[in-house]
């Protein structure tokens, strides 16, 4: 669409309220987020490297971390596959009831985690609507690691679908037409034209789903079974340590979780930069 040239931007800070709004933003952010987070790391520093290391050597803690991070990565991978498939179906196909089903995708955002937790547990329990048929097949979901993955997939799904949809909508059909005219098969077009274009968004969605799943508590603890060294997630172990007033252990675990999350998110960011360069 032709556009009239925009008038040159007016001088900066022409609008009022910059000092007030930025000042309030920084104060509020510092008081509620930055200072509390800094306090956690200061407390961890107080334990010393030796002290933190000692806490991290605990087998129970290592199991919990492995379960939370392994589970969240698995769930993010599952969500990447099904999320792409769902986004693709909604953007490219027409079918009856599309609006209604589309509205449902955000349900995990809107449903409180404790509610989702007890619903999923009841659904997948031995005599539940899904648990009973699965039990006949010899698959146990509730109170196992599999249950944890199910809950993590549930809460992460909308992140992938919602991040992918606008990009798929904007993806240029022209490029696909060109590829088709040049004799590409559908498979080649999907692999070489569409996938590279949506890869950065796909990684963003996966990162968001991962970040949410790794720290998730409410929707998981009901279905997890919470058996020490088997199905005890890291946030639950923090909760247990806090209840025992064992602040050093809770602090060490919280710092380990935050640092590991940031490393994973940073790695996904790097992959994204790589995907953009090779677009």
């Amino acid at each position: 669409m032709p556009r009239a040239p925009r008038p040159a931007r007016s001088p900066r800070r022409a609008l009022p309220g910059f000092g007030l709004s930025l000042g309030f933003t920084l104060t509020y952010l510092s008081l509620l987020v930055l200072i509390p987070l800094a306090a956690l790391f200061v407390r961890a520093a107080g334990l010393g490297v030796q002290g933190i290391w000692q806490e991290l050597l605990s087998e129970r803690l290592q199991h919990a971390l492995l379960l939370s991070f392994g589970g969240a990565l698995t769930a993010a991978a599952i969500n990447t596959v099904f999320g792409s498939l769902i986004a693709w179906t909604f953007v490219r196909y027409e079918f009856p009831g599309k609006r209604l089903f589309h509205a449902m995708i955000d349900l995990p955002f809107a449903l409180p985690t404790a509610v989702a937790g007890i619903a999923l547990t009841t659904l997948y329990a031995e005599h539940g609507w899904l648990g009973a048929p699965l039990a006949q097949l010899g698959i146990k979901v509730a109170y196992t690691q599999l249950g944890i993955i199910v809950a993590m997939v549930f809460i992460g799904l909308p992140f992938v679908v919602r991040t992918l949809e606008p990009v798929l909508e904007d993806a240029e059909k022209q490029l696909e037409e060109v590829a088709a005219t040049l004799g590409a098969t559908r498979r080649q077009t999907v692999l070489h034209i569409i996938l590279p274009a949506v890869l950065p968004a796909l990684l963003t969605g996966a990162a968001l789903a991962f970040a949410r799943a790794v720290g998730e508590y409410g929707s998981i603890i009901f279905i997890a079974g919470n058996v020490q060294n088997i199905s005890e997630i890291a946030p639950l172990l923090i909760m247990i340590r806090l209840d025992e007033f064992n602040y050093p252990a809770a602090t060490a675990l919280a710092c380990a979780m935050l640092v590991l999350s940031f490393i994973v998110l940073f790695a996904i960011n790097l992959m994204q930069a790589w995907a953009r360069r090779h677009d």
Binding site: V33, P36, L37, E216, Y217, I238, M239, M257, L258
Partner: peptide, 12 residues
């Protein structure tokens, strides 16, 4: 705050 576990948020 979106990438901080709710349990850690409460703990802070």
């Amino acid at each position: 705050p979106f990438s901080v576990s709710p349990v850690i948020a409460g703990m802070l």
